[in-house]
Amino acid sequence: MSLNITSHPERAPSELVPSRYAVQVGDIDVLVISDGVLPLPTKMLGHNADPDVRAAWLNDMFLPPDAFDWSLNVVLVKSGGQTILIDAGLGLDPNLNLPRAGQLIMRLEAAGIDLGAVTDVVLTHMHMDHVGGLLVDGVKERLRPDLRIHVAAAEVTFWEAPDFTYVDMPPGFPDALRATAKRFADAYRSQLYLFDQEHEVAPGVIVRRTGGHTPGHSIVRMASGGDRLTFAGDAVFTVGFEHPDWHNGFEHDPKEAARVRVRLLTELAATGEQLVATHLPFPSVGRVAVDGDAFRWVPAFWDY
């Protein structure tokens, strides 16, 4: 099986924009794949922020004031003979009317990637836009029967009785998140490989629990030959560099999520390693710089 990883982004023949982008981390192959976009209210970027300050930030970023499209990125990794899918996208949820997300399976096929070749799945957390792709009709039957799904034990426990006290989501989302997490746990419980704090999935590929966004939220660190890349899941959002203290509407423990974000961004700025995150603009490959008492996102120049 080949990941068909090349040194430049490609596009499916029927699409107008690239939907996958390859990065080399030493001997580790990394492919960032777009699962599409989620149109969400701008308030969710910082529901604890002063509305005027939030509006000014959106205006400075040339973003619409009420709602805009959040990118939804998934990562495929090949290391030590293992093929690892990090998160699985939204899948299909007709009740939420999100037709431009849930593209992962189609885009894996367009990249020539066989679902049956995936040996491991790592979940940063169990929100529906990270597990839903595994619930699409016919997908489970195409996966290996010995597929290992790595997820923090705290995440599985949380979704047995989830707490939505501190979130600020559009109507319908809490019910959809709760239902999707239950469906996923019921469908894949026998294939879950639980860890407490940190676990090496493959050579140079380590998943580490951060908490905050959800109790079991995790990031994935990749290191090989002096190169490093972190997939931050939902620990970092676009606004989080300039305003790391703003609370995202999907954060179940927003104060802890802000502390996690600052610690992670401080570390990434110090190491200079590459960052990819779920909801940064595709392909979301870049680095972090310190900017006064906040941070600055430095997108990578695309390698054509």
Rank of each mutant, 00 (worst) to 15 (best):
V207G: 03
L63M: 14
S19G: 12
A202M: 07
T83P: 01
F231S: 06
N73W: 06
L177I: 14
R261Y: 12
K140A: 14
V75L: 14
G172C: 11
W302A: 12
M44Q: 15
V75R: 09
V131H: 05
L135I: 07
R189F: 08
R20N: 02
Y188K: 04
E160R: 15
F62P: 00
A257D: 12
V131W: 02
L268W: 12
H47W: 15
G102V: 02
P162D: 05
G204F: 09
Q103I: 03
E198T: 10
S218I: 05
Q197W: 01
P299K: 06
V75W: 07
G81D: 10
R263G: 15
F68M: 11
A22D: 15
L90E: 11
R287G: 07
K182V: 12
V53Y: 07
D27H: 14
S79I: 00
E141W: 04
Q197L: 07
V75N: 10
R142Q: 15
A187H: 03
L38Y: 07
P145C: 10
Y193A: 09
T124W: 01
Y188W: 12
V32I: 14
A269L: 11
V290F: 00
T180S: 13
A153L: 08
Q24E: 13
S14M: 05
V288P: 11
L135M: 08
A181P: 00
F173C: 07
I86W: 04
L143R: 12
T83I: 10
N4Y: 04
L92M: 06
G116R: 03
D168V: 03
N97L: 13
D234G: 03
P99A: 10
A154G: 11
D186K: 11
S218N: 04
H243K: 15
A152Q: 01
T42R: 10
F158G: 04
N97V: 14
L264Q: 06
P18N: 08
P254C: 00
S224F: 11
I219F: 00
L38F: 11
G132S: 03
G132W: 03
I219M: 07
A258C: 13
D120K: 10
D196T: 08
Q191G: 04
P9M: 07
M1L: 09
E160T: 08
F295W: 09
V220S: 05
V37S: 07
A111C: 10
D29S: 15
I28F: 04
D168Y: 05
A49Y: 01
L72I: 13
A235V: 08
T180R: 14
E267A: 14
R142Y: 01
H217N: 08
D69I: 01
N95Q: 14
V25P: 06
G36D: 01
V205P: 05
G172V: 12
V136M: 13
K140P: 02
T238E: 13
F231W: 09
F184T: 10
A270I: 01
P254I: 02
P39D: 10
M61W: 11
G116V: 02
A202P: 04
V201C: 04
L194E: 06
G225H: 08
N95I: 05
A202I: 04
W70G: 02
H150I: 09
P51E: 15
F195A: 02
D196N: 07
A154R: 13
G132M: 00
P171L: 12
H243L: 11
G46C: 05
Q103C: 08
P94M: 12
G272L: 02
A88N: 13
V239Y: 11
A185V: 15
G216T: 03
H47L: 04
T157I: 09
